[in-house]
Design a protein around this nucleic acid. Structure first.
Lengths: 257, 257
DNA sequence: AGCAAGAGAATGGTACTACCAAACAAAAGA
DNA sequence: TCTTTTGTTTGGTAGTACCATTCTCTTGCT
């Protein structure tokens, strides 16, 4: 009943953007709550006094932002939903890709974030959570010891660990940042697990870090984190060096310096 | 070197998304370089063998992601551009708004980021940049001393300072994070400048921080940062207390039938 | 009565046409 | 040569028609 009055026709310039803004404002202002439906395209068409194409473009914009989910058929339409962290991460990933941000920058950023997260996690997470984190690292060890230590499983478990740790910081922003970075640059972590030498060290280091956290020993935990990123940094450097040599020489197995 | 061969008609399901993906892939894969133009809507229409509306929706999606910029008129069309940090920040701002992330979390996150940035800036930025930073803080002082210390000017200068400092870290990711957070939560900073007491302290603190950075004294600089966020934290707490006293009136909860 | 098949309606997805407005380019005129 | 006009290209919008999907309600059979 109320949607008839909250929208106004838009004559000026780019009507599509204007409509998208009105709809977005209605959603963010909680005029339309998550789970509820926007009026159908044809209804909006009459309310806004414009063509259906304009409405469609506006709704597509909202969909791209992750504000709504679109269903077909009767009772279909644009349903308001909660924004997921992955949606935001996607745009960051795009940015990182296009700007060709150096892997070293990512590593540096992640290390600084992780250091803060670890301190917060030690201070705030429950003992149960800390034990659970150790259990997850042990899963990682099991995968490594198993007969088929495939890279994907390791990488996935690594992601789970990172997110779990971020959650323990009790600050959703750290959790989001970690998710976004993982999404945008998981490829470099994979590289770490491709090399058998780095792989073993990394896994053991994860376990050690989790233990230090459970022991509520921030200093030692930070040392473990530093070690982890030291490995990652060297690995990235090796990759960089390799990719330069590939043209002249065959791909050589990476070695520890 | 023609776009006639790199795109394929899409029959399956949501043709619009398929086309958007193809175009995005072409851009990210550098088939079309920044500054160049996508074919016109009508050309793409024939290449993809579909209606113009579908093409438009696909291009609008790219525009929303910040991948292209659309111009009207002859020689108009969708021009590939570099993604700007503000585009990515927008989606983060949406997320923070919708998830109702507590201001305290933002303050905590910003403080931890700023601490890292300050250390990096001291280590990496040139002396000239550090002097420039001090000059910017002095501008802030001037605005405050001036006859019309309006909040907007102060807030704008505050943003400039934050971004400038982030740039000095020589890591674009920190710069982006700072931009994104500013965009998403400038309102809380504004609050700091609304209160005359906090305002003066904050401005003086900014100046002190810049000086500590120029002196290459990380410890004292970090102390300044802590002081800044201590102020911000108290300010946010005050606001929270105030808003609780007001909220008895009840927010107007408009709802849709 | 109960269940299944089918008809109907609502809704997004697509195609096509027509026209407008803006921006640029080339021709025409001073 | 410079200015004005005209034309062309291109995005922006309106409107219509039709299809595919999904839900609902009716019909009809058991």
């Amino acid at each position: 009943m109320s949607t008839q009055s909250i929208f106004a026709p838009a004559q000026i310039g780019r009507a599509g953007e204007d409509i998208a803004m009105q709809l977005e404002a209605a959603i963010l202002g909680e005029k339309i709550l998550p789970g509820e439906r926007l009026p159908s395209e044809r209804e909006l068409q009459t309310q806004f006094q414009c063509g259906r194409g304009v409405i469609r473009e506006a709704i597509r914009a909202l969909k791209q932002k992750g504000l709504v989910e679109i269903r077909k058929g009767a009772k279909g339409g644009a349903y308001v939903k909660n924004i997921e962290m992955t949606n935001v991460g996607e745009s960051l990933a795009l940015f990182l890709k296009q700007q060709r941000v150096a892997p070293g920058h990512i590593v540096e950023f992640r290390e600084s974030i992780d250091r803060v997260i670890v301190v917060l996690a030690i201070a705030r997470a429950s003992a149960a959570e800390k034990q659970a984190l150790i259990a997850e690292t042990e899963k990682l060890l099991e995968i490594l010891e198993g007969e088929t230590p495939d890279r994907d499983s390791l990488a996935r478990q690594d992601q789970i660990l990172n997110i779990a740790l971020a959650k323990m910081s009790r600050n959703p922003i750290f959790e989001w940042v970690m998710t976004a970075i993982q999404q945008g640059f998981s490829s470099h972590d994979y590289a770490l697990y491709d090399d058998p030498v780095y792989c073993r060290k990394t896994v053991e280091n994860w376990h050690a870090t989790a233990c230090r956290i459970a022991e509520n020993d921030p200093m030692k935990a930070l040392n473990s984190i530093s070690a982890h990123y030291g490995l990652l940094h060297r690995c990235v450097e090796n990759q960089k060096a390799e990719s330069k040599n590939v043209s002249a020489d065959g791909p050589d197995t990476a070695q520890v310096s």
